[in-house]
């Protein structure tokens, strides 16, 4: 009885984590595609508004046309590919790592530390932890608990591979 209960629980948690993977992917994919589809989009204003320890680095990126262009392209396509991977459930462990890396970069440019203010208004009240950090930890869960084999393209591919063996 207890064992069945545990199995049910782990199945439920797998479903929950798979759903978490899909919604985080949704967020990445939509943000990425909106940027890819808008040739006018640039991260310049966001970078110029950076605060905290690394603001010099971010402003440097914003000030250099070539670097800014590279940053914008990598960011937009990075978000899009990570989004696709997480939603579809294919290589999503790599996507989770990549996503955490991007989110860390966003966080370090706008850390939610007391005493740092930004031109761009915040959508809530934060002390150190903000939504970027929460999403980063969501990706950590996704990384440590793969669900592609459970709900995702990986399941389809691996079962086809099984067939060929």
């Amino acid at each position: 009885m207890q064992y069945t209960q545990m199995m049910n629980n782990s199945k439920h948690s797998l479903i929950a984590i798979a759903l978490l993977r899909i919604v985080v992917g949704w967020h990445f994919l939509y943000e990425g595609l909106v940027k890819v589809l808008n040739p006018e989009w640039t991260s310049r204003a966001f970078l110029l508004d950076s605060g905290g320890w690394f603001n010099g680095f971010y402003r440097y990126l914003a000030g250099n046309a070539t670097l800014l262009n590279i940053t914008d392209t990598l960011n937009a396509w990075g978000l899009t590919l990570i989004g696709f991977s997480l939603v579809l459930g294919l290589w999503s462990r790599f996507a989770a790592l990549g996503g955490m890396f991007l989110l860390a970069l966003y966080y370090l440019s706008h850390p939610a530390f007391p005493g740092i203010t930004y031109l761009f208004p915040s959508d809530g009240s934060y002390f150190i932890v903000n939504k970027t950090i929460v999403e980063m930890f969501a990706l950590a869960v996704i990384y440590f608990q793969p669900t592609d084999y459970f709900i995702g393209l990986e399941r389809l591919i691996s079962s086809k591979k099984r067939n060929h063996e």
Partner: peptide, 28 residues
């Protein structure tokens, strides 16, 4: 074949999400 209907459903479960995102983008 090694690919069960269940595999199919679970494997492609997220495809509709792409449709929804596509719809959102189209609207935008």
């Amino acid at each position: 074949k090694g690919v069960t209907r269940r595999d199919m459903i679970a494997g492609l479960a997220a495809i509709p999400v792409l449709g929804v995102i596509g719809y959102g983008l189209l609207k935008q």
